[in-house]
Amino acid sequence: MQYVEPKKVIHKTATRVWSVKDFCREHRVSGEEEARLLQLFGQFATACELRYNTMRKPKWR
């Protein structure tokens, strides 16, 4: 067992948590896809979850 002093702990998050609406606005995700992500995750999700679950149309079509 090891005691860790709270003052010496660094609070850095390994993953960024996004507001789903902000993520969709910044990455130009459609309104339908935004509604699907909100239903899937709620108001907040990690960047990784949002990136892997966003479906986008190809740009060349």
Rank of each mutant, 00 (worst) to 15 (best):
W60T: 14
C48L: 05
V9F: 15
F44C: 04
E34F: 03
L50Q: 09
G42D: 11
T54M: 14
Q43L: 04
K12Q: 11
E5G: 07
R51T: 08
T54R: 13
G42Q: 12
Q43G: 04
Y3D: 13
V29S: 05
Y3E: 13
Q43H: 01
Q43M: 02
T54L: 01
L40M: 11
K57W: 11
R36Q: 12
A35Q: 13
R56A: 08
E49Q: 15
F23E: 10
K7G: 06
L40W: 08
D22P: 02
R16H: 06
K57L: 15
A14K: 08
C48Y: 12
P58G: 03
C24S: 12
L38I: 01
E33N: 03
Y3V: 13
K21D: 15
Q2A: 07
Y3W: 07
K21V: 10
V29G: 05
C24L: 14
V29N: 04
R28A: 12
Y3T: 09
E34V: 00
V29R: 10
Q2D: 12
G42L: 09
P58V: 13
H27S: 11
E33P: 03
K7F: 11
E5W: 09
L37C: 09
M1V: 01
K57Q: 08
I10C: 01
S30M: 03
R56V: 10
C24F: 13
M55K: 01
L37P: 09
V9S: 04
Y3F: 13
H27V: 01
